Computed example of a mutant assay.
Amino acid sequence: MRILHTSDWHIGRSFHGHATLDALRGVLDALVARVREHEVDVVIVAGDVFDSAAPAAACYSLLTDTLRSLADAGAAVVVTSGNHDSAARLGFQSSLLRDGIHVVTDPLTIGTPITLADEHGPVHVYGIPFLEPALVRHLWPDAELRSQHHTLAHAMDLIRADIAARGGRSVTIAHCFAAGVDATPGVEREIRQGSLDVVPLAVFDGPDYVALGHIHGRQRLSDAVRYAGAPLHYSFGEADKPRGSWLVELDAAGLASVEWLDLPIPRRLVTIRGALDDLLSDASHAGAVDAWVCAQYTDATPQPEPMRRLQARFPHCATVMHTPEGVRGDDGLTYARRVRAARSDAELVDAFLAHVREGEGASEREAEIIRDVIDERTLTEALA
């Protein structure tokens, strides 16, 4: 049996204020093409199908179109809910879906598999929707469910018990933060508090393959436990991470092979850094003209209209950051102490500039302008 493992579609998420729906549609069309090309039997979507609990109507249309296309390509589809999804909204029409499309959002179905078959016999697919301990604790009052670790461990105990009773090959789907992953700072909206919600890898022992979601980068925790990551780049922190899915092959004995299949990147992400004038003119940045750009300009002082000026050269400049270089270190003085130490109006202005610039006072040219303004004001007051 051939299984395609994907996750974290985040339908409806924006990228620095830019809609991503059209780009995602193109990537998901490419994923459907991979399903046809490799004659995939089952597609797994491991949570975070939508980006919000209340997606717009166009998001539902994209999901419906993609699920229909996957089914038309000959694959069964198993979708589970993630921490971004509303289980109720994602699962409300599950009973109306065509045969072969399964949406798992009900915690009480954990331990009851979706059973598929190939020439070697049955394959039991166990979907675990995202489990918030506080919201599911009442379902299993005899279990200690104080954290993601406890809750996923309980879910896996239910699954292992069913596997032992049924026999055969098995696959599990979960959406969580597993121990050993390399998360992208500021990207995965954390579902952990301290270390309580990190799920140890040993929790997932038992199934032939475990398809995980939540982390946006491809990661292999073991041969049988992997993250596929998101199909689009949703942050500049993800720029160096490939986009794609895992092609998992099960033979009669269980896991036979796992292969990575790349997906196209609609627009690559580039971070450029330097003085603003250099960013606007240096030929070395010419390759970024068609990319999403994060511009970090290093001038000592903020420059006027940096976004407008940068977008004249880089039409897809998405964010601008002022990250000055060569700024003097913090001298430990508070703003009040700087003000009290000033002996003239010019020194008072310089103290303000030093405070807001993290130690960098007025330049020679700025000091000259400050003196001229103060002298003009003094003369005006004297003549009044």
Rank of each mutant, 00 (worst) to 15 (best):
D8S: 03
G12M: 02
S14L: 05
S14D: 08
A19N: 08
L21N: 07
L24E: 01
L24T: 00
V27L: 11
V27F: 06
A33N: 13
H38A: 14
V49F: 02
D51M: 02
A57R: 15
A58T: 14
A75I: 14
G82N: 03
N83C: 06
R89E: 14
L90V: 10
V103P: 07
V103Y: 11
D106A: 14
T115P: 07
D118N: 12
G127M: 03
F130P: 05
F130L: 10
F130I: 05
L131T: 03
E132C: 05
P133W: 06
L139W: 14
A143M: 05
L145G: 00
R146D: 13
M156H: 03
G167A: 15
R169F: 07
S170M: 10
V171L: 12
F177Y: 12
A183C: 09
V187E: 01
R192Y: 02
Q193K: 02
G194W: 02
G194A: 15
L196D: 03
V198G: 01
V203W: 02
D208W: 02
A211R: 10
H214C: 06
S222H: 11
S222M: 04
A224M: 09
A228E: 00
A228Y: 00
P231C: 07
S235Q: 05
F236W: 05
G237C: 04
P242V: 08
L247G: 07
L247P: 02
D251H: 10
A256L: 09
E259R: 15
V270D: 00
I272N: 01
D278Q: 13
L280I: 14
D282P: 08
V289M: 09
A291F: 00
W292G: 00
A295C: 13
Y297T: 15
D299N: 13
P302Y: 12
Q311W: 05
R313S: 12
C317V: 11
T323R: 15
P324A: 13
E325L: 13
G329V: 03
R337F: 05
R337D: 06
V339R: 05
A341F: 07
A342H: 04
A346I: 07
A351F: 03
H355K: 05
G359E: 01
R365H: 02
E376V: 08
T378N: 14
T378P: 02
